[in-house]
Design a protein around this nucleic acid. Structure first.
Lengths: 278, 278
DNA sequence: TTGAAAAAGTTGGAAAATCAACACAAAACT
DNA sequence: AGTTTTGTGTTGATTTTCCAACTTTTTCAA
């Protein structure tokens, strides 16, 4: 399989140094968060690689469901905009969505769940909405993409939105009001996202988002981290917490065995999609 | 120049009928609100026109700043859904939007404004975002459609979302948390919607929405009711308040003279769109 | 009716992207 | 060390898009 990444070539040219596949794809994703469209030729020039390499990157990211491939480039995926997931057969579930599916399985009937902001975490929404339960559940989130993704919940199931300052880029609210509001509740389970995860813990680029994540973790019995495979071995300045504070990690691919065994030793559960069982 | 549009050809074929330039471009914009990227070839086929025509459309829309032109097609502008209203000629503002435009004029630099939920009230959003002010403004709303409509506010301008139970039909939050949160603030001005308005007052179909409207009115110096002409002489079970509690009414047509004079006697201002002044 | 202006269609060569196949280098594995 | 896997570059035939200039059709108004 294509699990093990190649380390960056690190060939130092005059000024720029070549990036590995992983980092390159990560940068492409970042670029797409800012601009809604990228072009093959432009990326090839920026990263100083052949256009075919970029095309392969784009095709890979696309089949993981992370971006939309277009002629001449790729475009960002609109957040919370997959209304049809519920009906599709499980076998057809593509990469990115798998994380949401695995996560939704962790919510039990009658649970109270806190759900963080971010495109990865928002994948859980349509699958939560598709479940039928005996006891009503309650969802608490600071992210509009999440509530938007829950097509139709039963009437007796509650979706609570946090207050706060609205952030257009993340489609979420942040700030003191958000934290305070969260502290009024107690949840069984929390689903958290991150910009990057490494052996030292997981981190995020947005300081205000980090505060919300911490608040959710404090007020929940269990904390599950939802990250796709491109986030592995990425570190950002704002550290959220060490891995030990997590109940488990939900991801779309089996990580490197070394990392997996570290998790096992620390008593952290790992939910990774496996082709054979689905 | 390219200001005056040609009317649609309206040549009726077997099934499809050709669209005029204006409508075609309108459709392209709509398409881009759903999908982040469109392709020249696809559009040409769908509208049954030459690719060159589509290219001209795309170039035009792009130079108006409405879309981003890309190789082979075009992509949606980052997030913002309708940042264009500011540039469009005033005469092109269609019925529903007029209410929003009139309302946005009432917000002064440095104001704190509360904004209710509902499609009519949400019309104010793009026009608020288009204004440039000397002092930062603060907006407080329980409706996602409102914040979503504010394409790009300056960074120093705050948009505060209320907490509460999310209601999918209204794209808004309601409940005790919402009320409590609103009570913590004091605003200069509030914009309220209603399902119906009559001489006796204005009313709404949703009891939980009514509670929020009352809370906003309590905490604001001024209250403006935003209603389109179809709401006149309509009464619903849940009465919100008598007309006397309003500062004014904003609507898209001159109401009957009899009603207008009643408002005048009661000291309620009336802002109704008049073709001649715009 | 006639004529100017706007919109849409047509054409051909240049530029760019796609796709498939193959070659090569660097890692990773045994 | 030697083999396999993985990532990347290269090439060339094919398709698609772009651009500019020109023609045709439609619209509108004098």
């Amino acid at each position: 399989m294509a699990l093990v990444g190649t380390k960056p070539a690190l060939i130092e040219g005059d000024v720029a140094l070549r990036l590995g596949k992983k980092e390159r794809q990560q940068r492409i994703l970042q670029e797409l968060q800012v601009h809604p469209h990228v072009r093959v030729a432009t990326l090839a020039e920026r990263f100083d690689v052949a256009t075919e390499t970029i095309r392969r990157d784009l095709d890979a990211l696309s089949s993981d469901g992370l971006i939309n491939r277009e002629f001449g480039g790729a475009s960002a995926r609109p957040m919370g905009h997959q209304p049809d997931l519920a009906q599709r057969q499980l076998s057809a579930v593509a990469g990115f969505e798998r994380i949401g599916m695995l996560a939704a399985d962790m919510v039990r009937s009658g649970d109270v769940a806190m759900i963080d902001a971010g495109s990865t975490v928002a994948q859980i929404a349509p699958f939560l909405a598709a479940r039928t339960t005996k006891l009503p559940r309650t969802f608490l989130t600071n992210c509009y993409a999440v509530v938007h993704g829950m097509a139709e919940l039963a009437d007796h199931e509650d979706v609570l939105m946090c207050p706060g300052q609205f952030n257009r880029r993340e489609n979420a609210v942040y700030g003191n009001d958000t934290i305070e509001y969260l502290r009024r509740f107690h949840a069984n389970i929390a689903f958290i996202g991150a910009s990057g995860i490494s052996r030292q813990g997981f981190s995020d680029v947005n300081r205000r988002a980090v505060a919300v994540k911490r608040a959710m973790m404090e007020r929940s019995d269990e904390t599950w981290l939802m990250v796709d495979h491109t986030k592995f071995d990425q570190r950002y300045l704002e550290n959220v917490a060490p891995l030990e504070e997590l109940t488990g990690i939900i991801t779309d691919r089996q990580p490197e065995p070394e990392f997996a065994s570290q998790l096992e030793r620390a008593g952290i559960r790992l939910l990774a999609w496996r082709e054979d069982t689905h």
